[in-house]
């Protein structure tokens, strides 16, 4: 009896010990970056770290003074907002039509469009965008983001639309609703969960994307990830400001996703991620 209880206790202890180890491994970089971002030039690179060193905001000041940080943040915000809005307007109706007329070849195309490597799209885009004057414009960046958002959105929304009973739509038609009216007033409110999921994941994809803006944005529309990359080249080995810049870049997306955690997890579990 006693022995059983002891074994159980040890088991529990062991379980939590392993748990804490796992958390440490995956969460450690975040603790490090949050710590380092508040250290002065001497302490930031110190090995071993001085945990009791007084925190400072100098690094953040330096990031803001570097110039471009704020405008890049604004660029990122604009591109993300425009992409997500455009994506819903373009993808939801398409997903709805495909959900009602599902065919294998459509499904394959959508899958393949999600699979295609971005670098292969980027080569022709670069030439086309330059020709059409889309290089270094918000529209260009939004279009590039739409290319992965549209297939992803359609793929994820299909299930949501298929769960809307056809009879509910038919009832709306008989009630005197047009096709567009039925879609906007009846179908879209019923797939709200999917829309939040898409917006959450889309915020993450579009905020984090690096390769497209790296090539397609110039001085006028540079986004945060591209800024951080450039900032790294300018401040080699200056850990404090680099950590502060990293922290500031990822903070908005982390906050946004954590607010919609439930939907994020749903989306991840569904798509197996990108």
């Amino acid at each position: 009896m006693m022995a059983d209880q002891t074994i159980q206790k040890i088991n529990r202890l062991l379980f939590y010990a392993i748990l804490i180890f796992i958390v440490t491994v995956f969460f450690f970089p975040f603790m490090w970056v949050a710590f380092t971002a508040f250290q002065d030039a001497v302490n930031a690179g110190a090995v071993p770290p001085d945990l009791l060193a007084p925190p400072t905001l100098d690094n953040f000041r330096q990031v803001f003074e570097e110039g471009g940080f704020i405008s890049c943040m604004i660029n990122s915000t604009i591109v993300v907002a425009l992409t997500l809005t455009a994506n819903l307007i373009v993808s939801l109706p398409a997903a709805y039509v495909i959900a009602r007329n599902r065919q294998n070849w459509m499904m394959f195309l959508i899958l393949f469009m999600q699979m295609a490597p971005w670098i292969t799209l980027l080569l022709p885009w670069y030439i086309i965008f330059k020709k059409l004057g889309l290089y270094d414009t918000y529209i260009g960046l939004v279009l590039s983001n739409l290319t992965f958002m549209i297939p992803f959105t359609i793929w994820l929304m299909l299930g949501f639309f298929e769960d809307v009973p056809v009879e509910v739509e038919e009832a709306a038609w008989l009630d005197g609703c047009s096709h567009l009216g039925t879609f906007v007033r009846i179908v879209v409110p019923l797939v709200k969960g999917g829309i939040i999921t898409i917006t959450t994941l889309g915020f993450m994809f579009c905020w984090n994307i690096f390769l497209f803006p790296l090539v397609l944005s110039g001085y006028g529309t540079k986004t945060l990830p591209v800024f951080v990359y450039g900032f790294m080249d300018d401040n080699q080995l200056d850990f404090g400001p680099l950590a502060a810049a990293s922290l500031l870049t990822m903070l908005p997306v982390i906050i946004f996703v954590l607010i919609n955690q439930k939907y994020f997890r749903q989306g991840i579990a569904f798509g197996g991620g990108k």
Binding site: F30, V33, N208, L224, F239, L242, A243, V253, Q261
Partner: peptide, 19 residues
């Protein structure tokens, strides 16, 4: 806590890792 690595901006985290 385990969701953090998935969410965080990869470029920023790559920078952190390279440090």
């Amino acid at each position: 806590l385990l969701m953090f690595p998935i969410i965080a901006t990869p470029v920023a985290m790559s920078l952190v890792w390279s440090m």
